[in-house]
């Protein structure tokens, strides 16, 4: 199978099949990342198309010594940020973030635990929805997409130290909300019970 760099090389030479291959490989990841950045109300399919059009226009700037996926993450983040900043429906979209909680599968055998999971997801979604978009982008790239700060820095064109500062601020917002809502205590129930049983035994 051709590597991404080889496929990109073929795209540069105008090979239509290479474009299709590039889309097939990366559209799902791009869509998922966009979904995580803009939530439900974000016209994900439109945005995916836009990302690939941006990619068309800026392919000359891609250097083979960089990872294609990192570069694509950068384009995707910029497209999402532009959309979010210019969007009058920003507040509504923030609210849409909370809709993730209805998608959360209750796969816990304990109904109380399933309810707790939904409550945690709702609270966390609200924090992310209200979060500054710069912080949210970095948090999603790190915690959900698994990129480290150097990769994020390269993708966004910012220093890795800036990435870390944003990441820490994002985490602190989420952590503070979880603590304020009492989830640090609520999640402890089963753990404490197990501890008591163990000590009793």
């Amino acid at each position: 199978m051709l590597s991404d760099v080889e496929v990109v090389g073929r795209c540069r030479r105008g090979d239509p099949a290479a474009w299709a291959e590039l889309y097939r490989r990366h559209a799902p990841t791009t869509a998922r990342f966009l979904y995580r950045l803009v939530g439900h109300g974000g016209d994900i399919d439109d945005l995916v198309q836009q990302v690939f059009v941006e990619l068309v226009a800026s392919l000359d700037r891609f250097r083979a010594d960089a990872r294609f996926t990192t570069w694509l993450y950068g384009i995707t983040a910029h497209v999402a940020c532009d959309r979010l900043r210019g969007d009058a429906l920003w507040h509504r979209r923030n609210r849409d973030y909370g809709e993730w909680c209805v998608l959360a599968r209750d796969d816990s055998p304990d109904p109380a635990d399933g309810a707790l999971a939904r409550a945690i997801l709702e609270a966390a979604s609200n924090v992310l929805g209200a979060m500054d978009v710069k912080l949210r982008v970095v948090w999603v790239m790190n915690e959900l997409e698994g990129l480290d700060s150097d990769q994020i820095g390269k993708a966004l064109g910012i220093p890795a130290t800036t990435v870390r500062v944003r990441l820490f601020r994002a985490r602190r917002e989420l952590r503070d909300e979880l603590v304020a809502a009492g989830f640090d205590r609520a999640t402890l129930g089963p753990v404490i019970r197990i501890g008591v049983q163990a000590r009793g035994a």
Binding site: C101, A117, I120, L121, A123, A124, E143, L178, F183
Partner: peptide
């Protein structure tokens, strides 16, 4: 709580 919130958002 933190790991669970990340896991739940990631999954959803």
């Amino acid at each position: 709580a933190y790991d669970r919130s990340v896991g739940l958002i990631g999954k959803a």
